[in-house]
């Protein structure tokens, strides 16, 4: 029997035993901001703990960053994700614009109380910049594979990325695979999964507007103003945003604790369960570990 994946979602399961459709494809609603319509994905389940708001990375979409993590987080709480809207006509995206969109989504999502904000990669930059404004609607902050100031190493890769984007899509795809995943993960895939990774990288190149903005990030000054409990998650084998960035975030944010995951930058693909469990635990009880703690996940 091939499972019916096309019926509209009512609950986790339909009465006839079939499943709801894949998540993060059809928006559940929209938030209007400055004349633009931001698609949101609201799990809508009742929750006694803080709603999680997810800010996606350079892939440009909630599904691109969180297809595996979002459903796991919904097991325990309401989760809201959204697709950042890019300016028309290839105009530059600004960090202020991205922050403004996030603010609009958080304002929408925080009706029941302050939210647990979770940013991944470029989304961590946006989330940290927003949190530095000390918004009352944010209860805690998780920064996954984020950074505060673009450095030479990142620029080298970004230069190459932009050149290949225009000249050689196939090479661009290979660069992305090299940079996004850890060596161990790539080597360990079976042929089938390897094919899927290649196809996914080829099908969805990152939006150029985000990649251009990534060149000029500098939010260092704001970090000291962040006053909510923060979890910084660094990825040990990250070649896109190398580990030293997460360690700097840990140093810069007063109420931060730190955890490393043994993955490449694409932690939401390499270790979705670990990432989700860690973020879920932290969002449930942000003060479980005092500021300055280096959290170590138990070995299996």
């Amino acid at each position: 029997m091939v499972t019916n994946l096309t019926e509209p979602r009512q609950s986790a399961w339909h009465a006839d035993g079939t499943l709801h459709e894949p998540l993060l494809i059809e928006p559940t609603g929209y938030v209007e901001h400055a004349g633009r319509v931001i698609p949101i994905y609201d799990s809508g389940n009742e929750t006694s703990t803080a709603t999680i708001v997810l800010v996606h990375g350079s892939s440009g979409s909630a599904r691109g960053s969180f297809w595996a993590v979002y459903p796991i987080l919904t097991f325990t709480r309401r989760v809201v994700a959204f697709d950042l809207q890019l300016p028309a006509d290839d105009a530059d995206l600004t960090l202020a614009d991205a922050v403004a969109q996030l603010r609009a989504v958080v304002d929408h999502a925080s009706g029941e109380g302050p939210v647990a904000l979770v940013g991944y990669s470029f989304g961590a930059v946006v989330a940290a910049a927003y949190a530095s404004e000390r918004p009352p609607a944010v209860a805690s902050l998780s920064l996954v594979a984020g950074w505060s100031k673009t450095d030479r190493y990142q620029l080298l890769r970004n230069n190459l990325w932009l050149r290949l984007h225009d000249a050689d899509p196939e090479a661009l795809c290979q660069l992305t695979l090299l940079m996004a995943y850890s060596a161990g993960f790539l080597v360990g895939r079976n042929e089938r999964d390897w094919r899927e990774l290649q196809q996914a990288a080829a099908a969805r190149p990152y939006p150029v507007q985000i990649m251009r903005l990534n060149r000029d990030i500098d939010i260092e000054l704001g970090l000291s103003r962040i006053d909510v409990p923060t979890l910084v998650i660094g990825c040990r084998y990250d070649d896109m945003v190398p580990l030293h960035h997460s360690r700097m975030l840990f140093g810069a944010i007063a109420d931060a604790r730190y955890l490393e995951i043994e993955s490449g930058h694409a932690v939401s693909v390499e270790r979705p369960a670990e990432l989700a469990v860690v973020v879920d635990d932290f969002s449930l009880d942000p003060h479980e570990h005092p500021a300055g703690t280096i959290i170590r996940n138990d070995h299996a």
Partner: peptide, 11 residues
């Protein structure tokens, strides 16, 4: 997540 019937994982 397969056991929780998450569509992407089931598929």
């Amino acid at each position: 997540p397969q056991r929780r019937g998450i569509a992407d994982f089931i598929a």
